[in-house]
Design a binder for these strands. Structure first.
Length: 364
DNA sequence: AAAAGCGGCAACCGCCGATTC
DNA sequence: TGAATCGGCGGTTGCCGCTTT
């Protein structure tokens, strides 16, 4: 048996709200409240609207202290940081930005931030390719004394195989972003950082929380963002042990069946906040290689549906902006737990192929 | 000047969990 | 206990205004 509709669709007005409707709804709610029943509200107010529509209008537009547009740089940073950490949980992100609605943030991300990030990525990639092309031309000229397009394309093809890894060749092992190593003046989050607090609340732990490093064993099929794990130990706790360490995982509102919790936590590991959008792109200058270029499906940066790669970017794609496999392991980001010595300072993370398929990860 | 294309954003849709009966 | 109902959420749609051709 299907679910009954919340309202009589035939007698309900749709589309943009008129100022009169806004005024009616606002006046009623300010004087009488919602009464805890949105479905019955339109009739009381005298509106031919669906209750859900009233709720949405109130929450997204009419309620007091709503801010529209003009996102500050700080707000952008928070959105980006949280997006790569917890994905498209707009209501949670909105809760960290007073006056902002989840709808606003979602729209802002989809129309501005996503493109801003990927657009910068593409520019850098093009500049890099151009530089390499020039180098190759010089090299060919200096060795052969002459130059033709055939030799260039041969060189360039080899070069591309190295520089632009296909999805198939990309290792699936991210690493803590080496902020202190690469940026000594880097942004260090302290215990009062609101994002840190939020992520801890959601079940994450930080590497400086040394007494409470939390290992999560993911033996459940990985979904979006499944690349995000930091292999650490060969022995992983059971889910019961996990919940024992972190009971809120077992009973908070996000714990649906264990799968969601863990997939959510996959985005929380190695969490580092970003200063700004530019910095995100900077630290991941190779994170989207192949994204705009020809991928191993021969899509030339476009999906078969004709959607641009910008549009098809998903949570995992964005997360890859933060966790780059080409990160060099340093003494600062080296995870001390034994990984059969695969993670050694001086090695690049992409060399740690043996860990593909390992399903343990550490919340850093 | 008009048509086409594009981007931004408000609003809708449908699913899911919680609550009520 | 399970069906009905509601609230909340994220994804998607479609309108509208601006820009480009």
């Amino acid at each position: 048996m299907g679910r009954a509709p919340c309202c009589d669709k035939a007698n309900v007005k749709k589309g943009p709200w008129s100022p009169e409707e806004d005024a009616k709804l606002k006046k009623y709610i300010e004087e009488s409240g919602t009464g805890g029943n949105w479905i019955a509200l339109p009739q009381k107010v005298g509106l031919k609207r669906c209750g859900k529509s009233c709720r949405l209008r109130w929450l997204n537009y009419l309620r007091p202290n709503i801010k529209h547009g003009g996102f500050s740089e700080e707000e952008e940073n928070i959105i980006c940081s949280l997006y790569v950490s917890i994905g498209s949980r707009w209501s949670i992100i909105a809760a960290q930005l007073p006056g902002r609605t989840d709808n606003d943030i979602k729209n802002y991300w989809n129309t501005r931030l996503k493109k801003k990030l990927l657009g910068k990525q593409r520019k850098e990639q093009q500049a890099r390719r151009l530089g390499c092309l020039k180098q190759e031309m010089k090299k060919v000229m200096s060795t052969t004394g002459t130059f033709n397009m055939v030799s260039l394309s041969d060189h360039n093809r080899n070069y591309n195989q190295y520089v632009i890894p296909t999805h198939q060749n990309q290792p699936h092992i991210p690493i803590p972003m080496p902020y202190p190593a690469q940026d000594p003046a880097g942004y260090m989050i302290d215990n009062n950082d609101p994002i840190r607090k939020l992520l801890i609340k959601l079940g994450g732990r930080f590497c400086d929380d040394q007494n409470n490093q939390l290992l999560v064993h993911n033996d459940i099929g990985m979904s979006a963002g499944n690349d995000l794990y930091c292999p650490t130990l060969n022995i992983s706790p059971t889910q019961e042990q996990l919940y024992e360490n972190s009971p809120h995982l077992a009973n908070d509102q996000y714990d649906i069946d264990g799968v969601n919790n863990l997939s959510m936590l996959q985005g929380l590991n190695c969490y580092q906040p970003v200063h700004d959008v530019d910095q995100m792109a900077y630290y991941n200058s190779q994170g989207l290689d192949g994204f705009y270029g020809e991928d191993n499906m021969g899509n030339n940066g476009y999906t078969s549906a004709g959607t641009s790669s910008v549009e098809s970017a998903n949570w995992a794609d964005m997360a890859s902006l933060v966790y780059t496999p080409n990160t060099v392991i340093t003494s600062d980001n080296y995870v001390p737990q034994d990984c059969n010595d695969h993670q050694q300072p001086g090695r690049m993370l992409k060399d740690c192929h043996d860990f593909e398929g390992d399903s343990s990860f550490l919340i850093m």
